[in-house]
Write a protein that binds this DNA or RNA. Structure first.
Ligand SMILES: [Mn+2]
Ligand SMILES: [Mn+2]
Ligand SMILES: [Zn+2]
Ligand SMILES: [Zn+2]
Lengths: 127, 127
DNA sequence: TGTATTTTTGCAACTTAGTTGCATTAAATT
DNA sequence: AATTTAATGCAACTAAGTTGCAAAAATACA
């Protein structure tokens, strides 16, 4: 338990995740791998990689699912709590290297905070 | 321009929005109104009501679209920037009466912040 | 080795939220 | 009342994601 099998699909998909902070949408990945593997496989491999704490998923502005590399997670310890940013101009999505403090709200017990910021990325700002 | 026509559908749908802060998912609304109006009508009426600043939409944890009443918006001025809360136990979704300050992020121009908090609501906490 | 067992993959069919085109109905303008 | 405009119903569609099952690949183990 707790070790991902490095099948061909796994290796291929992992190679799409840069060490940086840029995310990939599942739709994009399915499209780009369409003549290499089935979309069901893409979904299932991403699922396993997330279970093992290698990548994490979140929803973008249009409700699509995005994945990005985890930096300090494992299957036991999922600790990647940061905002995500989506550029309205070019559509790029990235993890922000900022930590989120869970707000205290009256009469509620807050467990998670999903923060999605949108605006213009550096490239698009300077056009 | 800028005035919603109070058709039967509009009145019926508006009656589902309490003056409080609880949200309704579109799916739920479509289901509850299923023998009264077509789902396309529900989507279109919600759309119009949002355009006029009477309600606002956002995505819940499972990617569904939710709507809630706006408190200080109009068709000209959409100003309802607050976090939303989804209870993991009972599924209730509500607007939180707290304002969000847009974070400053290096090299990016942030325009909007969507914050979704999840956890336990008051009712579910005390079970 | 070779055989049995387990895991992964492909494929087709399905589910579900949301959208679109078009004809009909209702409301507002004149 | 006749004309114009906006709202609705309906059926068909789109797109993301899921499921069941059989085939293929990887692993275990005699
Ligand atoms: Mn991230
Ligand atoms: Mn709200
Ligand atoms: Zn950009
Ligand atoms: Zn609750």
């Amino acid at each position: 338990m707790g070790v991902i099998r490095k099948t061909k699909s796994v290796t291929t998909i992992l190679s799409y995740f840069s060490d940086g902070h840029e995310a990939i949408s599942v739709v994009d990945l399915v499209e780009r791998l369409s003549d290499e593997m089935n979309k069901t496989t893409v979904y299932r491999v991403l699922d396993r990689l997330e279970d093992e704490g290698l990548i994490h998923s979140f929803s973008g502005a249009k409700g699509l699912t995005w994945y990005a590399k985890c930096h300090d997670c494992s299957s036991h310890h999922h600790q990647d709590v940061h905002p995500h940013f989506e550029c309205k101009e070019c559509g790029k999505v990235e993890c922000l290297d900022v930590s989120i403090e869970l707000p205290q709200i009256n009469n509620r017990h807050i467990e998670t905070a999903d923060v999605l910021l949108t605006g213009q990325c550096d490239d698009c700002k300077n056009l």
